[in-house]
């Protein structure tokens, strides 16, 4: 390739959003929607793949760009599912879009979960709040590759049944014999909740965990991390076997713009998945 031809155009523009169509919108809890997107370019649609835990930069034409973790599993290609909370300028604009509208998508970005390491181990997924959005990708990846994993356990905590993301999908998993799905809520004013009550750490009473052969994957609000980490360390989990998905402000997604720095790592390329060991060694994580 001569220099001259590279001068002429940007061959491989890392900031280029690709058009994707909103093919379906599934209501979740209040202010949360699950968007199913399909790339317009058939080649992109069939080639796009990701690791669970990765994210995309989503553009709403005219409103800007925002990072959103991918909720679908790479084992189910063709459609990219993004679970979005209506919270800022871009997401508010997204919620106003009609079905079949076009959005821009680039990615996937971030390290994602270290799938190779997780395989042949027990997998303990612990979610709180919106934390299920990235963890759902990991959960379905593991369930769709069931033989590659030993025990699969999901622990999820929410304030009320009405605040559980993917509630009906997860309720169905309770009956699945090849995994343990533990769901707990603080309270249920309607009085119909049949699963667990109490904080998510109470669910540890219902499982036997071998820290030497188990990886824990966490995503949730800071308060959840605090108590869950304590519980895992009490059970002698190595800090290297605790994986957490962290959030920061992101703009470029490709390690250039600086916004998502934690200490001197960039959440967008060094994360968003960090081991607990890595996380406590990031200066700014001491909070």
């Amino acid at each position: 390739m001569s220099t001259r031809s590279t001068l002429a155009k940007v061959k491989n523009d890392i900031y280029q959003p690709y058009l994707a169509r909103i093919v379906k919108v599934l209501p979740q809890i209040q202010d949360h929607l699950l968007f199913q997107l399909k790339f317009e370019d058939p080649r992109m649609a069939s080639n796009f793949t990701h690791r669970p835990g990765q994210f995309v930069e989503l553009s709403v034409i005219g409103s800007g760009e925002a990072p959103v973790s991918i909720s679908s599993s790479p084992t189910r290609p063709g459609i990219v599912e993004l679970c979005v909370r209506k919270t800022g300028r871009v997401t508010n604009a997204l919620f106003r879009l009609p079905l079949n509208a076009l959005v821009g998508v680039r990615g996937p970005y971030g390290n994602g979960f270290p799938i190779d390491k997780l395989e042949d181990n027990n997998l303990l997924i612990i979610a709180g709040g919106l934390g299920m959005a990235p963890l759902r990708s990991l959960l379905w990846y593991a369930l769709d590759n069931r033989t590659k994993f030993k025990d699969i356990i999901l622990m999820l905590g929410a304030k009320t049944p009405g605040e559980i993301l993917f509630k009906y999908e997860l309720l169905k998993l309770i009956d699945r014999p090849d995994m343990k799905c533990l769901l707990t809520v603080d309270k249920d004013e309607e009085g119909i909740w049949k699963a667990h009550f109490g904080v998510v750490t109470k669910l540890f009473d219902y499982v036997e965990l071998d820290p030497a052969t188990t990886y824990a994957a966490l995503c949730g609000p800071p308060i959840m991390y605090k108590f869950v980490l304590k519980e895992l360390l009490k059970r002698n989990f190595s800090k290297d076997r605790i994986l957490m998905s962290l959030e920061r402000k992101m703009k470029c997604g490709v390690g250039k713009c600086g916004h998502c720095s934690i200490g001197y790592k960039y959440t967008c390329i060094d994360g968003p998945i960090f081991t607990y060991w890595d996380a406590i060694n990031l200066p700014e994580m001491v909070e």
Binding site: T6, V10, D13, V254, G255, K256
Partner: peptide, 17 residues
């Protein structure tokens, strides 16, 4: 900074010029 895993072509095209 502008190299790495994701190469920022806009920067490097200018750089060459």
């Amino acid at each position: 900074i502008f190299a790495g895993e994701f190469v920022d072509d806009r920067y490097f095209i200018r750089r060459k010029n």
